[in-house]
């Protein structure tokens, strides 16, 4: 500071806005490219690497018959799309939940999604042992049921962020008790549940992905349309209300969209931990408290991250295939620890 009075004019603010927009656009474009690149790599590599020259005609629809075409159309492409959809959905969902609950350690599992989906999958395995095809459907419904139970309890007690978190813990605990009970009484349900619990993309087929993609796209559109309200909400509930925001409905709408996003993701991949926690955190640093870039960066970054983790699990331990869920947990644990320790240091500083 040179001690001279600094003036602030309409032009200053305009410059600030323009500078920020440019920076957001650059980061967004970069992440988008990373996402496309990871998708391309995911189609290219695997147990049998395919040359680019063979991939291009398949993607352009000129080759549907060759062996390579079959690998791409029935295995690599659905798998890649599944990774992109799940990664984007989980990360965006986590970003919304963290913002709305003003809790940096929140993730989709905090509002009962994992517990609900897990219980539904186990129940499905116990009641209809032959109907493994129903698993994604059960997972989606279970996730929504879990989340809405949490929201309903949280809402009836005022929808403050604390009551939502507390009811999330209570509902998750009750659901996991029911899950254990189901697995004890019907041990056959365990096999369906075990794959679901680890989370991964082996055997993902197009049929299973399309509905999830549609739900995700719609929910993401809803969230993006509510980003100005999310920005205001980030100032604190009371203050947001004093600025004219109807806090309660906005909060519930956003959390519902987050539940649908995460529900769509678990219906495809099972429980993938830590994506909804890690990615929004990294994105938040680049988004400077703005929700629109936060959601977009999270979605692009999450899609790229999950795709790369899945690819790593497929390639690094060949001929074994390690589920993406395992890779994510291996990376997620240390990151979480680093996050908590770093926060504590800052708090004491």
């Amino acid at each position: 500071m040179n001690g001279l009075p600094v003036s602030c004019t309409e032009k200053t603010i305009e410059d600030c806005i323009r500078k920020q927009k440019r920076r957001f656009f650059r980061t967004g474009a970069f992440l988008f490219c990373v996402m496309l690149l990871s998708a391309a790599l995911s189609v290219r590599f695997g147990s049998a690497p395919l040359p680019w020259a063979k991939i291009a005609p398949v993607l352009l629809g000129r080759d549907a018959e060759s062996v390579e075409a079959r690998i791409i159309l029935y295995s690599r492409l659905p798998r890649t799309l599944g990774c992109l959809c799940c990664g984007a959905s989980l990360a965006a969902s986590g970003a919304v939940i963290q913002s709305v609950l003003e809790n940096p350690l929140a993730a989709p599992n905090l509002i009962g999604i994992n517990a609900g989906a897990g219980l539904a999958v186990a129940l499905n395995g116990a009641l209809f042992p032959g109907a493994a095809a129903l698993t994604p459907f059960a997972a989606f419904l279970g996730a929504l049921a879990g989340a809405f139970t949490v929201l309903l309890i949280g809402e009836s007690t005022g929808a403050s962020r604390l009551t939502v978190i507390l009811s999330g813990i209570a509902v998750s605990s009750a659901f996991s008790g029911l899950l254990d009970l189901t697995l004890t009484l019907a041990p056959d349900a365990l096999s369906a549940y075990a794959d679901f619990r680890i989370g991964g993309f082996s055997g993902v087929v197009m049929r299973r992905i399309i509905p999830a993609c549609i739900v995700s796209a719609l929910s993401l559109a809803l969230v993006l349309s509510l980003t100005p309200q999310m920005d205001i909400l980030s100032l604190g509930a009371d203050y947001a209300q004093s600025l004219g925001l109807r806090v309660r409905p906005v909060r519930i709408l956003l959390l519902s969209a987050a539940a649908a996003l995460a529900g769509a993701a678990v219906s495809v991949s099972g429980l993938l931990g830590f994506v909804g926690l890690i990615v929004p955190h990294a994105a938040r640093r680049a988004a400077h408290g703005e929700s629109l870039p936060l959601i977009l960066f999270s979605a692009f970054g999450g899609a790229a991250f999950v795709t790369l983790c899945d690819l790593f699990g497929r390639v690094a331990f060949a001929p074994y295939e390690v589920p993406a869920g395992v890779i994510l947990s291996l990376l997620g644990g240390p990151f979480f620890l680093w996050l908590v320790l770093r926060r504590r240091r800052n708090d004491y500083a």
Binding site: T12, C16, Q20, S234, G236, R284, H288, G289, E290
Partner: peptide
């Protein structure tokens, strides 16, 4: 509170 944003944005 000090949300993570610039003053002009606030």
């Amino acid at each position: 509170n000090a949300p993570d944003m610039t003053v002009w944005r606030m």
